[in-house]
Amino acid sequence: MTPFLYERAADRQGALALGARAGASYLGGGTNLVDLMRETIAHPELLVDVTGLSREIEDTPEGGLRIGAGVKNTAVAGDRRVRQRYPLLAQAILAGASAQIRNMATTGGNILQRTRCAYFYDDAARCNKRAPGAGCDAVEGFNRIHAILGASPACVATHPSDMCVALAALEATVTLEGQDGGREIAFADLHRLPGETPEVETQLRPGELITAVTLPPNGLAARSTYRKVRDRASYAFALVSVAAGLELEGGVIGDVRLALGGVAHKPWRAHAAEAALKGRPATESVFREAAEAELAPARPLRDNGFKIELARRVIVDTLVKLARTEETV
């Protein structure tokens, strides 16, 4: 680990002032950043500990929930309001990592975790994220866990978070604070596709801090689920995951949300599938068409072609089961 300075931010203004310094990086639970520093992938000169800030979950006047960026993953998943109104989010969080890590990891940190690509983690390999322009050893290497959607020749990595897949489906918004003031952006716009600049992973500006995630009133609580498929029964990253919520009106699909994990550089909101579902009857053949529509642009690499079929099956099966679910709320 390269030596660094450590400051615990007393308040938001203090955090932003520290975060504006060159080489500064915000520190949440450290479950990803400390590992990356130890692996000499990340070299912050100053760690600004923000775990003491934004630790509340509050009801919003609109009937939604505002989750402070410093709230631990366990606390979010354990919150009664989240469990009742946003069970999809609770499930997704509980599908991730281990209890120990969820006890440490913060909401903000989870959002900003980096890819698990082996070539990103190995500084002997070429990686455009670590060294822009160096090339990508994953394209022709081990890429079983890599992206099938939205990848570029420069980068085929995936985003590893489960929580973020649920947030994408729930149409959350993210509150960002910078020294020039705050802004809200749609969660779906926060993460970027790799394109030519895979080193730029989010829309965050230098020094900007995530302070909260806001969930809109509709938590899809009646019919929603998070389904995670992985290589062992627990404590493994998703090969494919699906966050889905469905509203039915007399057998016809009303609002529908579908997001995929493990398939792209960002939590993948399945807009094409959603468009193919809205207003159509909730039947297996419609679900299949929707999955096909979403996966039509999918491109396999050497080892990950199975993800296309797997995603298709999991989308269809998840929707079939949701359509069958009795309304619970």
């Binding site: 520190l27 281990s98 209890a99 006890n103």
Partner: peptide, 14 residues
């Protein structure tokens, strides 16, 4: 609360 002490910087637990 159970945590992984390997990922915890000691200073964070002051």
């Amino acid at each position: 609360e159970r945590i992984n002490s390997c990922l915890a910087l000691a200073v964070q637990y002051d």
